[in-house]
């Protein structure tokens, strides 16, 4: 039987992506096979998970969770489409001067197809479930609105933003699973939460590789984190006092419609995970919002 996996532990592929490519320990064909393998091994059936949900056993909060999450997942396709293009363009930029970094970026652009497909399971499963529950379907107009592609930004900032988005999604889905009394629905939410955790590990891996290459200052990672964590920042999502009015794209965390007295938003838990992720990516440890701001300002300089 042929060996299925590379002889490199998965934890190393995540944390040592840049040195693995720079030392030519592995190449893009091998890395892509790892991505495929991991994607295939974790795949699940939307049809059978949906069949195990008992529609009559769902609470009003379960239903609000399903409706909100299905709508939010509509924004993942433009996110993944953008990542594919941005990472490929960035790959070309480094091809001559830092080939290992160009390979990291191509691995990232390539992985976006698995990411896109996995998110498509979340989107279609949850929206179909909302339909079964009798919710009015998302209008085509809203569908188009949620599909708008985000404007481009610096690559490291983009990856860290996506990491924070996955953290938020992962914690929210875990909460949905805890609140669900129906075993079928709980299983579905847990499945999606574990997908989001895996997406997070990929974003950590690519972002860390960018920093490890020495070509990207950790400043970008701190800038995005500060943007989310500051007072009335993006992490508060739709609970913020003033949200940006924009018609370029939809940030799903701004579009949630909840009675916020009924669902916990777990800000402290999200923050704790963000600090840990920031340390994994940049090697710089911070433990509070103030430390994030201070470190970011120090990195910006005069």
């Amino acid at each position: 039987m042929p060996t299925l996996s590379l002889q490199i532990p998965r934890a190393d592929i995540v944390s040592q992506l840049y040195p693995l490519l720079a030392n030519q320990t592995c190449n893009l064909v091998e890395l892509t096979w790892e991505q495929h393998l991991f994607h295939e091994q974790r795949s699940w059936s939307a049809v059978s998970l949906l069949q195990s949900v008992n529609l009559d056993a769902l609470s009003p909060i379960d239903k609000a969770n399903i409706w909100n999450a299905g709508r939010a997942e509509l924004t993942t396709k433009p996110g993944a489409d953008r990542l594919a293009h941005l990472a490929d363009a960035e790959c070309r930029r480094w091809q001559d001067t830092n080939p290992a970094l160009a390979s990291v970026l191509q691995a990232c652009s390539t992985w976006s197809r698995y990411w896109n497909e996995e998110e498509s399971f979340h989107e279609t499963t949850l929206n179909h479930l909302a339909h079964q529950l009798g919710f009015e379907p998302v209008s085509d107009e809203s569908f188009l609105e949620f599909r708008k592609i985000f404007p481009n930004d610096d690559m490291l900032r983009t990856l860290v933003l996506l990491a924070i988005s996955e953290i938020t999604a992962m914690v929210n889905y875990s909460t949905c699973a805890q609140l669900a009394q129906d075993p079928g629905l709980r299983k579905l939410f847990k499945q999606i939460a574990s997908d989001e955790a895996q997406h997070l590990s990929y974003f950590i891996s690519f972002a860390k590789a960018l920093v490890d290459s020495g070509e990207y200052s950790p400043k970008g990672a701190f800038a995005i984190t500060h943007f989310f964590l500051r007072e009335d920042g993006e992490l508060q999502g739709s609970q913020r006092q003033k949200k940006e009015q924009r018609n370029t794209h939809v940030n799903w965390w701004d579009a949630l419609e909840y009675d916020w007295d009924q669902v916990p938003n777990n800000l402290a838990r999200k923050q704790g995970i963000i600090f840990s992720v920031l340390r994994q990516i940049t090697g710089i440890a911070v433990h509070s919002v103030n430390e994030v701001e201070q470190t970011w300002m120090d990195l910006v300089g005069c």
């Binding site: 930004d153 800038a223 943007f227 300002m297 910006v300």
Partner: peptide, 15 residues
């Protein structure tokens, strides 16, 4: 390019 860049320029002034 965007509001993150703008924030960085405010940070420069503050520094």
């Amino acid at each position: 390019q965007n509001s993150i860049d703008l924030m960085e320029s405010f940070a420069r002034v503050a520094n």
